[in-house]
Amino acid sequence: MTVLTLAKALNEGLRAAMDADPKVLVMGEDVGKLGGVFRVTDGLQKDFGEDRVIDTPLAESGIIGTAIGLALRGYRPVCEIQFDGFVFPAADQIITQLAKMPLRSLGKLKLPVVVRIPCGGGIGAVEHHSESPEAYFTHTGGLRVVACSNPVDAYTMIQDAVRCDDPIVFFEPKRRYWDKADVELDAPGLPLDKAKVVRTGSDVTLLAYGPMVKTCLESAAAAEEDGRSVEVIDLRSLSPLDMEVIAASVNRTGRCVVVHEAPVFTGLGGELAARISEACFYRLESPVLRVGGFSTPYPPSRLEDHYLPDLDRVLDAVDRVLAY
């Protein structure tokens, strides 16, 4: 058992993946000597050399485009996008190429590329450093999309992502990078496409992922003091969704609230609500509610506490689903 921050757990996971397979590469801006602006790749260049841990020119389209080429040549690149707001110059390579090439080759080409993206707000940053762009990618067939929420999952999920033969967009909750947990380095993790019940309850199901899992756990603890039993599910996989675990829970509780930082309008919560209404229609006691960001550009940091879902807004939604 080792106490690791989420950032360090990813670092250890990447190290294990690189040890296990010489084809695994790490590439991105400032990932070498600096170890990435969040230090997720700290020390990797020193230990694996400049050919495996590559400080790239400052161009995101270039990072993903060349990662595709490297993957075509048998490598397994793990690309770091420095901040969520800077993935868009690479959108063309991700959406028109990375996501579609395997199908176009009728399965002859595999693109085991991992696109790591620190995501979400809550760190008082300037523009473009606090976004939650997951729905752009879950809306793109051909990509797997996952989000880790804690050090234990981060450690195994990054290794599973590297081993997976599909392209994966891997979201990391940047405001949780410094959260610590005991990590069992030899313990196998839950498969990458599985959701996890992280707190059991019987009145309401909260669905969350990435940074909002902790917020939901805190909300559930607070709700308990008011005599409410709230179940929390960490989705882990955003595409595909683990409907088995989700539906089993909502069929038991009959009430569900989806929480994400991304805008509610056409966000992942909409897809979840629709699926739950199909899968749990006869058990639902209330509509599925969504708590999330507004349909505005991410605000300046002095307003982000209003924009981001917090304990009060989650509890308010819990009250509202229970009022039906």
Partner: peptide, 20 residues
């Protein structure tokens, strides 16, 4: 001064917008 929460919804669009 810190912006007021109303500021969140200002200037996003030039024209009236139902969702805003």
């Amino acid at each position: 001064p810190d912006p007021s929460p109303e500021a969140l919804f200002e200037h996003v669009y030039a024209e009236p917008h139902a969702l805003m």
